[in-house]
Nucleic acid binder design. Structure first.
Lengths: 247, 247
DNA sequence: GAGTGGTCTAGACCACTGG
DNA sequence: CAGTGGTCTAGACCACTCC
């Protein structure tokens, strides 16, 4: 990974190339603009289409900006906001990334008939049951959020054999049920806490919450989980990068 | 646009193809899975790489999910959340899209020396001045948000000749200064309003705000605007789609 | 093993930007 | 008008999934 591309690596060439270019940009090798695509392709002995795929990745990450007819601009050497989190991660992974020990207090875990909103979000037929799992999630000793998850019961028949005060829901879905969660639609909204939430999350007065709710889909395109997460406002900073669409 | 691809359209083939496939999916032509890439390419008489580019667009929009070795899954016929807004749009464009008349009340518009945060976000040298523009933005008669923008003065020398109670800042930047805004880093956080904000936005009691702040970059990769927007909580629903990264 | 999507190469041509 | 990035085609081979 010192600037050489391994043709028989498990990583595709364009990903290796992306990483190389990223570290070169961060090292200050290219300051305001990048060399042309043709020159870069020649330099790294790859086809121009492979090079272009690497640049497309960098652009998606917001590191460079390409425009037709112009040299491509170098924008960022690193993310402006630290809490960059526009990636689908389980709470467990999020905590591990921050070096905190994740665990949960389970408040509710049972089979119920869902209300209409949950039914619609999970594309369920009337009468189909869901599993509801309500937890306060902790990192080390600090409460991070209050989460409610709904899953179609038919997808997770023997789920009550797991202890979700310790286990990761997403990990169980993958390892035990073979369900890969790959995409989520999320909606953010600021809300005031209820009295119950003030207590559960140990909130100071006048602290608003960030409500994040949405649907998570498996690799087969099936809606697997409808969730609602409430975070302490001062701990909940979500950042994204957005682009102007041309077409 | 009835299912035929025009080879001499201004729109690239892969965009036309994306639109065709989208409308076919929404019409229910493909229900759970799509035909294979080879078959689709043959059906529309395009090269498989062009077809793949169209599918990549649909996947980015969250409409389908592709996995190696599997047929590609159809996920959504339409967005689950209506307020889908992960696109860089000016307030004026946002209002026009909703059919509302945008205008502003300008509260502050002057040259100042920025504080350290603004200086850092805009990559300014000490002593460089910025223009600050503080406005309450309205759609028809309703206040939508309170916005503060900071721009490097050197980029917009004669900006005080414009009246930003009517004009769109982003439009002036593009048409008068030739500055194309193409990318933004944004951060979201729930906050409680100050007394001033309660009054300016005509807020009911205990209504939290969504704070959205960030930096907007031009096509040359230059940070052009640092902004802070505060929205009424019940009017501020931001939605995104996130994916699991493989590499 | 048949079929799927993923990667890489090769080359042609186009559209746009800038001096 | 030279140089840039964008699009489209052609074909080979690989990695993975599912039966």
């Amino acid at each position: 990974m010192k600037g050489f591309i391994l043709r028989d690596s498990v990583l595709p060439v364009y990903i290796q190339l992306k990483n190389i270019l990223k570290s070169e940009i961060q090292a200050g090798l290219y300051d305001v603009t990048l060399p042309s695509e043709r020159k870069l392709a020649e330099k790294y002995h790859v086809n121009i289409h492979t090079l272009r795929k690497a640049l497309a990745e960098l652009e998606r990450e917001g590191m460079i900006i390409k425009r037709r007819g112009q040299v491509t601009a170098v924008v960022l050497k690193e993310a402006t906001f630290r809490d960059y989190a526009s990636e689908l991660l389980s709470f467990t992974e999020e905590m591990q990334r921050r070096g905190l020990k994740p665990w949960s207090r389970v408040l509710q875990f049972e089979r119920i008939l869902p209300d209409l909103e949950v039914q619609r979000m999970l594309s369920l037929n009337p009468g189909e049951e869901v599993v509801v799992l309500k937890r306060v999630r902790y990192g080390n000793d600090k409460p991070f959020n209050l989460g409610i998850s709904f899953l179609p019961y038919k997808l997770v028949p023997d789920i009550f054999s797991f202890d979700f005060s310790q286990e990761s829901l997403h990990y169980v879905l993958r390892s035990h049920y073979g369900i890969d969660l790959v995409m989520a639609e999320e909606l953010f909204e600021p809300v005031m806490p209820t009295l119950e939430e003030v207590e559960l999350l140990n909130l100071p007065p006048m602290m608003p919450l960030m409500l994040m709710k949405g649907v998570i889909y498996s690799s087969k395109g099936i809606p697997v989980e409808y969730f609602s997460l409430k975070f302490r406002g001062d701990e909940a900073r979500f950042s994204v990068r957005v682009f102007r669409n041309s077409y």
